[in-house]
Every structure is written in structure tokens, then in C-alpha cells.
Design a protein around this nucleic acid. Sequence first.
DNA 1: CCGTATCCATTCCGATACTG
DNA 2: CAGTATCGGAATGGATACGG
Lengths: 155, 155
Amino acid sequence: MAKRVSHKRSMCGVARPLDAIGDWWSLLIVRDAFDGLRRFGEFQKSIGLAKNILSARLRNLVAHGILDTVPASDGSPYQEYVLTAKGRGLFLLLVALRQWGEEFFFEGTEPHVELVDKESGLPVRRLELRAQDGRIVGVDDTEVRRPTPAEQHDP
Amino acid sequence: MAKRVSHKRSMCGVARPLDAIGDWWSLLIVRDAFDGLRRFGEFQKSIGLAKNILSARLRNLVAHGILDTVPASDGSPYQEYVLTAKGRGLFLLLVALRQWGEEFFFEGTEPHVELVDKESGLPVRRLELRAQDGRIVGVDDTEVRRPTPAEQHDP
DNA sequence: CCGTATCCATTCCGATACTG
DNA sequence: CAGTATCGGAATGGATACGG
């Protein structure tokens, strides 16, 4: 999980978060948390991974401040796992992943889960990236700027 | 890499793509590809992983149609790795990851790489998710709708 | 310079058993 | 139901050596 090469010090906003959510299961857990799942057993049933693994992943997500444990909502003497503000910040990332997945991993006819606007019940639009002046920008309209000209890439 | 639990048949757009880019290194490779890197050695120097691992990851990305190999640009008898349309479709996902990372993994004063609009040179805005009518919607304004009421969650 | 093949240590994951 | 502990098989990742 935490790889030997620590990207903690990388100046790239892409590299650093990968310690927290770079592994396979964590994003699925977070997705389920967005779906309203809170209990250990709920996650386990939904994702279908071994309990010890789930335990480790949950602990990791809590350690990274993405989930938080709260005492209980019903009377159970157990814990529930809820998204923190940092965790909720992953919303757009999940949307981006979902939209990419839907575009390239599903046949046109194939039924799939859909993210809809509660108010209208209609599917949301595609994510938009805009410049300061409001223009929608794509890959070729942007570039990456490094803070100091001394740095090559990541190191 | 491809886990025993195949999510290939999941109806969730989040789960399926994880076979392709769910691992730690792939996203960094794709990020570098967006940065213009094309050669084996460039990726290796930038990311700093063992050659056999890089080889496997590149092969996996090619197999998933995210990268493609092209003969050469200079005279070298080797290959170069370029993003396919599917790969370029990951742009917004990288942006989402980057913005989340910048928000929660960097101190305010800490310098970091920045994505800027080429035309103005100014940083891009935060990603926006809009409903059909143009309203910007967040987590609480949306919900997930499943294609048939028969399905519980993923299986 | 590009990539494959091999070896070895570490980690991951699933199954199971166990405690509260 | 909610976890922890342990065990064994599988896969990962790094280093290195090797061939085109």
C-alpha cells in the first residue's frame, strides 16, 4: 500500500494522493460510502472482500482522514464509517472515473448505473473544466507549470 | 493485477475501469504520457520503477487500449507509447485527482505543479458538474439510479 | 538505449478460526 | 454482527543480468 518510494514530497498533485487511494479496493469503499453504506458488514457484502482485508483498508482510509469512525447510529456497540470533508472531496474524482468508465467500458446498449440530478431526475452532464474566463478547456488547451524552473519532473 | 473478482460485468461505471487503471503506477504513467513522455526510458526515469514492472504496466495499458505503440519518431528501432482516444479520455480524471490532491495534500504555502490555461496562462478553475439545466450540482444534489430494481448493488 | 528473464523479499488476499 | 489472528498460496516489486 504505502510504497517504498514515498511520493509524499512530490510536487505533483497527482502523485501524492496515491498513497491514500491508490489501491484497488479503497475507491470502491469510498464509492459505497457515497452510496450511504456505513457498516462493516455492508461494505463486505457489497464489495465481497475478506474481512481482514476490509479491516485493513478501512483503517488505512481512516488514517488518511478520508473516513471517520463514529460510535453508532442504532444501538449497536460498534462503529460506523462516514466520509470526512476530505473524503467527500473525492466526489468529482468518482464522477470522472464513472463517466470515463461508462464511455469506454460499456456497450451503448448495455444497462448501467447512472448518476442523476435529484431535482430533475435527469442524468448529469459531462464534467466540465473551464478557464478563468469561462471557456471550456480540454487537454490541448492546458499545460502543466512547475513552480520553479529547477525541477525536472518529480524527484 | 486483474483480480480474481472480475468487475468486468459490474453495472457500476466506477468498478469496471479499475482493472485497467486501478493500480498504483498506471495513473502515473498516463500522467506522464499527458506530459508528452513517449519513450520507455523517459517513463522509467520519471517514475523510477524497475524496468520489468514498467514493461508489464505498459503492456497492460496497451492491452486495455489506453496506450498504443507506434514505430518510432526519430530513427530508433524501438517503440513509443502514445495515448489513444480512450487514454486521452482520462484527462478529466487526472484533473480531478490533481485538484483533490492539491486541496488536501498540500499546505497552503507549499509550491506545487499547476495546471494552467495556455491562452491566458492562468490556472484553470475547479471542475464543475452540472445538471441538464446548467445548475452546478454537488454530492447532495445527486443520486445513483440503477437500471433495474432487481439488482441489489454490484454482484 | 530498449526490453525481457530470473531471483528473491515483501506484500496481498482469501479462507478459516476465534473473541466479544 | 464486528472485528482480530493466523496461515498459505499467489502476485508484486526491486535488483540484476542478459540479449537486440
